[in-house]
Design a binder for these strands. Sequence first.
DNA 1: AGTAGATTGTACGTTAATATACAGTCGGGA
DNA 2: TCCCGACTGTATATTAACGTACAATCTACT
Lengths: 203, 203
Amino acid sequence: MSDFLDKRIQRSKAALKQTCLDLLAEKPFEEITISEIVRKANYNRGTFYAHFHTKEELIDEIIDDTLGEMIRQIRHPYQTIHKVNMKDLNTEEITLFSYFQEQAPLYKLLLSSHIRADFRYRMAKAIEQLFIAEYDYEFSSATELDPKWLYIFRAHGIAGLVIRWIEEDFPESPEYMAKQIVELMLTSTEVFYVKNKHVPKKP
Amino acid sequence: MSDFLDKRIQRSKAALKQTCLDLLAEKPFEEITISEIVRKANYNRGTFYAHFHTKEELIDEIIDDTLGEMIRQIRHPYQTIHKVNMKDLNTEEITLFSYFQEQAPLYKLLLSSHIRADFRYRMAKAIEQLFIAEYDYEFSSATELDPKWLYIFRAHGIAGLVIRWIEEDFPESPEYMAKQIVELMLTSTEVFYVKNKHVPKKP
DNA sequence: AGTAGATTGTACGTTAATATACAGTCGGGA
DNA sequence: TCCCGACTGTATATTAACGTACAATCTACT
C-alpha cells in the first residue's frame, strides 16, 4: 500500500497548508515567507523542506486538495447509478453548490488577488478532466460533434458560472443553481435570432 | 533549561487534551476511552502512554492548564506595581471576568456533570495558593486575625462568586463584576443587625 | 457458557520531526 | 560602503511518534 500515510506526515502537511491559508487571509502570497509559515505553525523549518521544495509547491498542493474535494462533490449525484437521465435527476443530490457556500472563505481566498495562481483555469481544467475520464454522453441524434469539445465547453461553462456565483456572494440559492445546471445540460437551441436586424417586410 | 519543550511534545499533548475536551462536550468522562481519544485525534495510542498513564492524568493536566491561565488573569492588574491600593485600582485592569466570558464553553464543561473532578474546589485552592504565595496584606488597625484565614476566606469567596456568575450565564457585565470585587475587598462590617428581633421600646 | 470484538498496557524496531549549525543571498540603515 | 538582521537551502545527530504485535481484561451478545 503506497497511498498509506504516516500520521506525522498527514499532520505536518495539513498544518503547514492551513497556516499558509491563514496567512493568505492577511497578506499576498509573495509577502509570505517559509520561515513565517513554520514559525506560526510551530514546526521546524526542516520539516517544511522535507515535504515541499518551495512555497509555490505548497500552494499548488492546497489547490489540488481543494479541487479534488470539489470533484468529489460533483461526482456525488452519480455515485451509484450508471445510466443518468438528466430529466429524472433529483436536484437535491447535487451538493456542489451548498458545498461552495460552506467553503466560501476558502474559495474567496483562492480567487482573491492575494494569490496569483490561475485558480480559475485550474478549476475548469479539473472539471474537464473529470468529464473526460468518467462520463460518456449519448447523443440523441446523428451529429458530427466531437465530444471533446462538449466536455471542454461544459467544463469551462460550469466553472465560469460557479465562480461568478461565488464572486457575487451567492445571489441565488444552491437549490436554484442546481436546477439551473440541469436545465443548462438539457438545453439545445436549434434556432436563434440575431438582434437589431430588421425583419423583412412583406411586399 | 528544563522547561524547554520539543515542538512534537507540545503538539501531541495539546491535541490529546483538546480532543478530550471535544469528546467531553458529547458524553461523560467515564464513557470516554483512551483508544477513542487517540483515534479521533489521529495519534498513535503509544503516544498517549508516553505522556499520560491514565485519562485521569490527562484531565488533571487540562484542569491545571486552565487554572494556571486563570491565575495569570488574576495577576494581571498587579504585574507592575508593588504596593496596591485597592481604592485607587483601575478596575479596567481586572481582566478576569471578560476572560471567563471568552472561555465560557471551557468553564461550563469543567463545571458540568460530565466531569466528576472537584473543579470548584480546585479553583478555590488555586486562588488560595496564589494569595499566600504572592500577596501580603497590610492591616489598618491592630487585629488578631491570622492572614491565613483571610486568604482562605477570600479565595473561596471569589471562586464561589465567579462560578455562580458563570453558571447563571453572566447576568452582570464583566465591568460590573470587577467593581463588585473591589468593593468586596474594601468592605468591612463593624456593625450588623440580627433580623426579626424587636427593637426594645423606650420606657 | 462460550465466543467475538474492543480496550488496555507494554514492548520494540523504524521513521519523521527535532534542534542546531553553516554558508549563501538579499534589503535597509548608519 | 559596510554591516546587520532575516530568509534560504542543506546537512546531521538525536528523539518523539510511528506501526505493529501480544497478552490480558472486559463487555455484549445468543
